[in-house]
């Protein structure tokens, strides 16, 4: 479990996070959503002490991380950033093997004892056929999957992911989504796509202007009453026959009122928003 308690982050006179308190429980996927600049990435970074806190505290399994070493944190929390720019001269296996650094230390990291775990992590993200290739030859989507494989190889009980499906094609997006719930006991994921958040997250935190606008179970939270002011749009939430949430967004104003969803079959959709 990761908790943030009254976390405030200031950078260059700007307040990026203002008194943010959240809990990411064990055994759940916690989603962080919100418009651009709402502080999602900063919050994720604050959870691993990658940004200095002006106030508040972050705890991992009840331990205040301020008092802990980088290695202590890395043994419990793996993070996958939005823009991974790994050394292009490394091969996929070399980069994924760095996941073992926190657990095994520099002397034994990347040794023969960890080969099976590294190969398994690469297989989990579907990159076995490229395992021995240099990172310079990989596409953006493949690099994203390499970063995920490294987090899997890190064997941490908490995994933080920033937009993990950003550069992925449909097939790999579905695979990563299916993997999210199994990657670690505690998963925190920043997502732009609300439908995806509704699909994969048990628990959602909505940020707006560096503050928590709402937090709770996704089905209770992702409603027009909350989303409209946060995103400054008109939202319609639709639940299809399979119980999946669909969102239809429009710009506020007279033109948007008449807009209707065009692709979905009306029989399978019940409109929640009157």
């Amino acid at each position: 479990m990761i908790t943030a308690d009254g976390v405030t982050v200031r950078l260059g006179g700007r307040v990026l996070l203002d008194d943010v308190s959240i809990t990411a429980p064990t055994g759940a996927v916690t989603g962080i959503v919100g418009p651009n600049g709402s502080g999602k990435t900063t919050l994720l970074r604050a959870l691993v002490r990658a940004v200095p806190l002006a106030a508040g505290r972050v705890s991992v399994d009840g331990h205040d991380i301020r008092a802990r070493s980088r290695r202590w944190i890395a043994r419990r929390v793996a993070e996958v950033g939005q823009r991974a720019e790994p050394d292009p001269a490394l091969r996929v296996v070399d980069e994924v093997a760095l996941g073992g650094l926190a657990e095994h230390g520099p002397l034994r990291a990347g040794g023969a004892g960890q080969d099976d775990r590294v190969a398994g992590a690469i297989d989990a993200v579907g990159l076995t056929h490229r395992a021995l290739d240099r990172l310079a030859t990989l596409s953006g989507g493949e690099l994203q999957r390499v970063a995920l494989a490294r987090a899997i190889a890190q064997n941490a009980s908490h995994v933080l992911l920033d937009e993990p499906t950003n550069h992925l094609d449909i097939r790999h997006r579905l695979e990563i989504v299916a993997l999210l719930g199994r990657i670690a006991p505690t998963v925190v994921v920043v997502l732009h796509d609300l439908e995806l958040a509704a699909q994969v997250c048990d628990h959602v935190i909505v940020l707006h202007g560096g503050r928590v606008a709402g937090a709770g179970a996704q089905c209770d939270l992702l409603r027009p009453e909350l989303l409209d002011p946060v995103y400054d749009v008109v939202t319609r939430r639709l639940v299809d026959g399979a119980g999946r949430s669909r969102f239809d967004f429009a710009l506020p104003g007279p033109a948007s009122v008449a807009r209707t969803p065009s692709i979905r079959t009306p029989q399978t959709i019940t409109q929640e928003n009157p």
Partner: peptide, 13 residues
């Protein structure tokens, strides 16, 4: 060599 975020994630300052 893979960047500061990479190093921190691996448990290095």
């Amino acid at each position: 060599a893979s960047g500061d975020d990479s190093a921190r994630s691996a448990g290095i300052d």
